[in-house]
Amino acid sequence: MQQLRGREGARVRRTYREHARRTKVTWTHRDYDPENFAGSDPINQALSAAHVCLYGIVHAVIVALGAAPGLGFIHTGHERSFVYDIADLYKAEISIPVAFDVVARGSADVPADTRRAVRDRLFELNLLDRCAADIRRLLLPDSAGQQEGHAFSEDVVNLWDESGAEMPSGINYADEYEVDF
């Protein structure tokens, strides 16, 4: 795990350097204080804004799929550990290049322009569908989304039954089962 973290850290640092070179934005290191957003330089503000947007989208996808945001495999000990794990899959492609591009353009409003640029990039890459497919592939036994002979469909919701059978939702079963309250 320590090797994985070390390699991931090196990959991200290399990604920051590459985008700094590409955009000619001055880059020293990732530096931010969550309590003082305005105290950061423009590139660190843009990175923070871009990453937060990405976290929000990934969180929404995780919850929509019924997964636990705190599940965490790489990140642990936080209620959004799984969000950070999944978001890390997309930072080098989405939030990091967007942040450097916004700062390179000389934006007058770095946070707002970064949020809009991330929104556009997410739409361009169809991230919602892609993220949902990636999470299913990570959590389900095979990439087709099959689990113990059951097909996964986001359009079908079933109810659990103690017999082990799935029962269709959206039906009032009160008449079939005599229940007194």
Rank of each mutant, 00 (worst) to 15 (best):
H150P: 01
D109T: 01
L71F: 15
T15Q: 09
S169E: 09
E148D: 10
G70K: 00
D33P: 05
H150L: 15
E154C: 08
R17G: 07
I171S: 05
D120H: 12
A144D: 14
T15H: 06
V25K: 05
A108F: 03
A117Y: 03
T26D: 15
K91S: 09
R80V: 08
G77D: 11
I86C: 00
N44S: 02
D161G: 08
L122G: 06
E162A: 15
I74G: 08
R13Y: 09
V103L: 06
E166M: 05
V157H: 03
A174K: 14
P69I: 11
V58F: 00
I43M: 05
G66F: 04
Q147Y: 13
A132G: 09
D120F: 10
G170D: 06
F37D: 15
V58C: 12
R5V: 13
F82Y: 06
D155C: 05
F181S: 12
M167W: 14
L122F: 03
E8C: 09
R116Q: 04
L140V: 11
L4Y: 04
I86L: 13
Y173V: 05
P97Q: 03
P42S: 08
R11D: 14
H75D: 05
T114N: 11
A60T: 14
H29Q: 10
H19D: 12
L139I: 04
S81M: 01
R80W: 12
L54N: 15
I96W: 13
M1L: 10
L139R: 13
D33S: 13
S95M: 08
E8L: 11
G149V: 00
I86W: 00
Q147L: 10
L65M: 12
E166P: 02
S81T: 06
I94P: 07
G170C: 11
D175I: 15
T28C: 04
N36G: 00
Y84W: 07
V118E: 09
G145A: 14
I57N: 06
D85W: 05
S40C: 13
V179D: 15
V157P: 10
F37S: 04
E162M: 02
H150C: 09
A99N: 01
V179H: 06
G170R: 14
A99K: 04
G39E: 02
N126M: 11
Y90G: 00
